[in-house]
């Protein structure tokens, strides 16, 4: 029986030679990939399991006494306000710095400037916090007063102006400086890799330097700038120490950037409240951490989507 069956079985396909170097490398690469997924899953599982009691607890047990949504809501608003303000200020500045370093500055100045910008990233955030509190906040008080006088028709500048400068506005600017090196370093990298082939094509058509940058550098670097901006946004969303030091937070939901009553941010609220939190209070803080985790996840997915939307035209093919 087996003897008659044997011939119709397909001949064994010749197996590719497996070299130990390939196997070790493939295995370790796969292992690294799995490891990062496990860590992520572990963090998510911890956040969810610890946040569950807060989700099911009666609303009067939640700090504030009005339920989880009204506790976390203002924190989410504060987190987004500060981070988005930082992103809006930092991105154009970082792109400008990156373009100056890659295409305008004399080589020696470019090298020094690039080094100095990178140095910004090496300053600990607690130093930024104290600098923001001691220098930036008082310096910005006159602007707060001016904005309250002249721009109060914009909800963001409704006033009354803070006299200490410890506002969401100041936080946004300090966060902008903190994320500047991240965005400008990545932008610089992608701008300098814009192919000479296409830069020459633009110049040969009679483009000025700025037109050449618009035709051949910015479109090529766009996805890199977006990626850098999202990394920066991630840092701004999660920044704890600097915000905790500068911001006089804890007030309810408001988009007013320049008054003394500001919503706190998720990360700084956790840092400030955790030492005294007990029982469901701890679960509530962890639930807010879960929300921050989800916000960051959504931001990154959005960035991916934006980058991939016109992949055909990205210049990567």
């Amino acid at each position: 029986m087996t003897a008659t069956k044997a011939p119709i079985e397909p001949p064994p396909t010749p197996r590719a030679v497996r070299r130990p170097g390939d196997r070790i490398f493939a295995g370790s690469a796969k292992g690294s990939g799995i490891f990062i997924l496990l860590v992520l899953a572990g963090v998510a599982a911890f956040l969810i399991s610890e946040a569950l009691p807060a989700l099911t607890a009666p609303s009067e047990d939640i700090p504030g006494g009005e339920g989880l949504a009204s506790y976390i809501g203002p924190l989410v608003l504060g987190t987004l306000l500060g981070a988005v303000l930082a992103l809006l200020v930092a991105t154009p500045l970082a792109v400008g710095i990156a373009l100056y370093i890659t295409y305008y500055a004399p080589r020696r100045i470019a090298a020094v400037l690039g080094y100095v910008i990178d140095l910004l990233a090496a300053i600990p955030s607690v130093v930024y916090g104290f600098w923001g509190l001691a220098v930036v906040a008082p310096t910005l008080v006159p602007f707060h007063v001016w904005a309250a006088d002249h721009l109060s028709w914009i909800p963001f500048f409704a006033g009354p102006a803070s006299t200490s400068g410890r506002t969401m506005f100041t936080v946004g600017l300090v966060l902008a400086i903190m994320i500047l090196p991240i965005i400008s370093a990545i932008s610089r990298e992608v701008f300098s890799q814009a192919p000479a082939l296409h830069r020459e094509a633009a110049l040969a058509l009679g483009a000025t330097r700025w037109e050449m940058i618009q035709m051949a550098v910015l479109p090529y670097g766009k996805s890199g700038v977006i990626a850098g901006a999202m990394l920066g946004l991630g840092r701004a969303l999660g920044e704890t120490m600097a915000v905790a030091i500068i911001l006089s937070g804890g007030a309810g939901a408001t988009v007013n950037l320049i008054s003394n009553s500001n919503p706190s941010t998720i990360a700084s609220n956790i840092a400030l409240s955790f030492p005294e939190a007990t029982g469901v209070g701890v679960n509530t803080l962890i639930a807010s951490g879960l929300v921050l985790f989800l916000i960051t996840l959504v931001v990154n997915m959005l960035a991916r989507w934006v980058v991939n939307r016109r992949a055909d035209f990205s210049g990567a093919n």
Binding site: H198, E200, A201, M215, P219, Y220, F313
Partner: peptide, 11 residues
């Protein structure tokens, strides 16, 4: 140029 260099980001 020697190598064809249409702008990849344009139609």
């Amino acid at each position: 140029f020697q190598r064809p260099n249409p702008f990849p980001t344009m139609s």
